[in-house]
């Protein structure tokens, strides 16, 4: 579904990715773990076009997406969240979700001028957005500015925007950090739902209990390199992982 070959990326003298080659299958839930500075977020940034690799290629199926802009990659069905959330904080919770839907038919010039079918379409999108917010238990906040939500609620909203895109590949940067136990359970269930819908989920995470619960596969990174890749029970019991990271 999504893969990369021989990815290299350095920031000044710091090597963030050093020959990373990975492949993620349809319906797979894969956790990327490793100490701070291991290159985990850089990997997500390169896969989604936010950072250009110095060398290497990224593929979505057979499409080469290496040089595509982030919005082009998103339109091909790869959606992501960020550690620093990046919501439009002045807009309402509902509007943030509406913004995430793919460009609609009405956004063509002719449709916009003719107004044919626009109100039906807008109404349908609002219904769908309300469903997404309900799924994420954010309905009661839908008219509040996104910036007024707590951090944990904003984190849920970023996942809601990913859901709204209808993407088949979801890259989540630390979905469990900064959330309370109840929200944590909700995120666990959501990721399970993504798996049931055969979506590919790659998530960077430090919460190892959550990794054990939801991941089918764990990739451990250190200093820009993949040092282990396999089933959670195997990777999370290796002594070198335990010593260096846990």
């Amino acid at each position: 579904m999504l893969s990369c070959v021989d990815l290299h990326k350095s920031f000044d003298s710091v090597v963030a990715l050093n020959g990373v080659a990975l492949s993620f299958a349809r319906g797979e839930v894969c956790a990327v773990i490793g100490p701070n500075g291991a290159g985990k977020t850089t990997l997500l940034n390169v896969l989604t076009g936010f950072i250009r690799a110095d060398r290497g290629r990224c593929l979505l199926g057979t499409w080469d997406i290496t040089a595509l802009a982030p919005h082009r990659i998103a339109l091909k069905g790869v959606s992501r969240t960020f550690q620093d959330l990046r919501l439009v904080k002045q807009l309402s919770v509902l509007d943030n979700v509406l913004l995430a839907f793919k460009p609609q038919m009405g956004e063509s010039l002719w449709r916009a001028l003719s107004r044919v079918g626009l109100s039906d379409q807008a109404a349908a999108l609002r219904v769908r957005a309300a469903e997404v917010l309900s799924e994420l238990r954010l309905s009661e906040h839908k008219h509040q500015p996104a910036g007024d939500l707590s951090y944990g609620q904003q984190k849920l909203l970023t996942i809601a925007t990913c859901v709204a895109t209808g993407a088949n590949v979801l890259l989540l940067d630390e979905p469990f950090s900064g959330v309370d136990p109840g929200t944590r359970e909700l995120v666990v269930k959501l990721i399970d739902t993504f798996r049931q819908k055969s979506k590919t989920v790659v998530f960077v995470e430090h919460d190892i209990d959550a990794v054990r619960r939801v991941a089918d596969r764990v990739i451990a990174m250190s200093q820009g390199t993949v040092i282990a890749d396999g089933a959670p029970e195997e990777i999370l019991s290796r002594s070198e992982i335990l010593e260096s990271y846990l």
Partner: peptide, 8 residues
Amino acid sequence: LGLGPKLV
């Protein structure tokens, strides 16, 4: 927030 288990 965002720190690995050892760093927390």
